[in-house]
């Protein structure tokens, strides 16, 4: 049975676009998140392998910025490498995207988890802030996923940075313009499938969604639900 986004206090800016596709919604982090977008999960996984667009707005995320961010994160047990514009995987599945020497963006898991995010949230307060300040990324930015073998070709219609997998390695970050919006693009393959996180100004979410669908049409790309992206990860490999 599908939940109704309108019954929840927290709502993705895209819920109407998704509802119009006959999406089926389920609870994730206080949101009603679209699990499928009008197809069944198997179909949508196949589409996600070719070219799929998914609204990840329900997933956990938070930012920290200030001159002392790297040291503060390290003191909390989070490990962020020294190179900017790179994402660093953490033990609990969270990734820390280092946007600048003094700015980190933490992205939670596809299953709505974010143990490290919770831990840091509990540790941080304005009263004890020392050169490191929290950024409410769940409301500053919308979060989309573009996945599939045609993803880079689609981005070439919207973005002047070469995002092809041979030139843009896993965990690389490009902070640039996508469809004339300031955007953060992070390569984050899921399983064997090429995929990118795309974060932009939350108020432009509907505009961006429509611009992406228009660019995807050439490749038969279309929206997919969260279940499809989770499905790309497949069962955990037992070896390697």
């Amino acid at each position: 049975m599908s939940l109704a986004p309108g019954d929840h206090l927290r709502r993705s800016f895209l819920y109407r676009e998704l509802a119009a596709l006959d999406a089926l919604f389920d609870e994730v982090n206080g949101h009603a998140a679209a699990m499928t977008c009008g197809g069944d999960t198997a179909q949508e996984i196949a589409r996600a392998r070719s070219l799929g667009l998914c609204d990840l707005s329900a997933l956990r995320r938070v930012g920290y910025k200030g001159w002392n961010t790297a040291a503060w994160l390290a003191a909390q047990g989070a490990s962020m490498g020294a190179e900017s514009n790179r994402a660093y995987a953490q033990a609990d599945g969270t990734r820390i995207a280092r946007l600048a020497p003094g700015e980190a963006l933490l992205l939670g898991t596809l299953h709505g988890g974010g143990a490290l995010i919770d831990q840091l949230g509990a540790a941080w307060s304005m009263a004890h802030a020392d050169g490191c300040f929290q950024v409410p990324r769940e409301d500053v930015s919308c979060w989309l996923s573009v996945s599939g073998e045609h993803a880079a070709a689609m981005f070439a219609k919207l973005c002047g940075v070469d995002l092809r997998p041979a030139k843009f390695p896993l965990h690389a970050i490009a902070q640039t313009s996508v469809a004339r919006l300031n955007a953060i693009v992070i390569r984050r393959d899921v399983g064997e499938t090429l995929a990118y996180d795309l974060l932009t100004d939350i108020a432009s979410a509907v505009y961006l969604w429509r611009a992406l669908l228009d660019a995807m049409a050439e490749f038969d790309g279309a929206p997919v639900g969260l279940a499809a992206i989770r499905g790309l990860a497949g069962p955990q490999p037992s070896e390697g």
């Binding site: 514009n85 002047g160 490009a174 640039t176």
Partner: peptide, 11 residues
């Protein structure tokens, strides 16, 4: 210096 070589339009 932060993002590497980019089109002038980004600046």
């Amino acid at each position: 210096p932060l993002n590497g070589p980019r089109n002038a339009q980004e600046f």
